[in-house]
């Protein structure tokens, strides 16, 4: 059985896995920070040490994600398209799935794929921060909350404070004005969760809905956003037992094995 490493270098986090065939041996998440090359190198070294394996045992290396093109490594590496890795990883995480929605820090991606995990149709939004995890981070910082708590807080709301600005910068000013006019934090958070769900749903509808769909990326950890998207596009996301952030890295590792 062959060992492979996959890394997904995002704007906020670097995700890495060591796989033996189809099984995960080790996984690491690191903050990208302001020096992505250094963080990627540290992630790689930690993967080797966690898996207790030397680098010459790794037969294939795959990297994808925003930072992949800007980095160089001292070993042969496959630079892989994000959407290809995403579909491959989704198919691995949930073998019956044929569609994946991925909401990361700076991109929302939606892809349909076949039984081999090959992409049939996709759309992505990476020009504007609305509809990305970065939007949630900015809003939670403005409210003095942890981004990981937004889902839970929003679900305690008694009403929805609708955010009219699509632009993250203007939406930040808007929610501060709601704080000043006495709106409750949970109701504002409810509006924030609703707002990002609406943006992501628009992209899903452009690709066309398909049953057997999963949701991945950091934002998939926000239950309130996930429920809103389900309501808006009238579908239920399938459960799978893997950290939703790791799907791209897993896909990179699997794709590198096959090339």
């Amino acid at each position: 059985m062959h060992f492979s490493i996959g890394m997904d270098i995002g704007l906020v986090g670097i995700k890495g896995v060591v796989m033996k065939g189809e099984n995960i041996v080790a996984q690491v998440v690191k903050d990208t920070g302001v020096r992505p090359a250094l963080a990627a190198k540290e992630c790689y070294e930690q993967l080797l040490s966690d898996a207790d394996i030397s680098s010459d045992k790794i037969q294939a290396h795959g990297v994808s994600g925003w930072g992949s093109k800007t980095l160089s490594f001292d070993f042969d590496i496959e630079y892989l398209p994000d959407v290809v890795c995403l579909a491959k990883g989704a198919k691995w995480a949930c073998p019956t799935s044929r569609m994946v929605v991925d909401v990361g820090a700076q991109t929302a991606k939606v892809a349909r794929f076949d039984g081999n995990g090959s992409v049939k149709k996709y759309e992505l939004s990476d020009k504007c921060a609305s509809g990305t995890g970065r939007f949630l981070e900015i809003m939670s910082a403005a409210l003095g909350l942890k981004v990981n708590n937004l889902g839970q807080i929003g679900q305690a709301a008694s009403k929805l404070v609708e955010i009219s600005s699509q632009c993250s910068v203007f939406a930040e000013s808007e929610i501060i004005s709601y704080v000043n006019t006495g709106e409750k934090t949970e109701d504002i958070v409810n509006g924030i969760n609703y707002s990002i769900a609406k943006r992501v749903s628009t992209i899903i509808m452009r690709v066309g809905i398909q049953e057997d769909i999963i949701i991945t990326g950091g934002v998939a950890k926000n239950d309130a956003v996930v429920r809103y998207i389900e309501e808006m596009v009238k579908v239920r996301f399938k459960d799978y037992g893997v950290d939703p952030q790791m799907i791209g890295a897993i896909g990179a590792s699997l794709t590198a094995q096959q090339t």
Binding site: L11, V34, R35, P36, Q106, K127, C128, A129, R134, F135, I138, C167, S168, V169
Partner: peptide
């Protein structure tokens, strides 16, 4: 990057 949020990142990386 056109988006202010992502341009801010771009600038931070350039500084780094």
């Amino acid at each position: 990057r056109r988006c202010s949020v992502f341009a801010e990142y771009e600038v931070i990386f350039l500084l780094a």
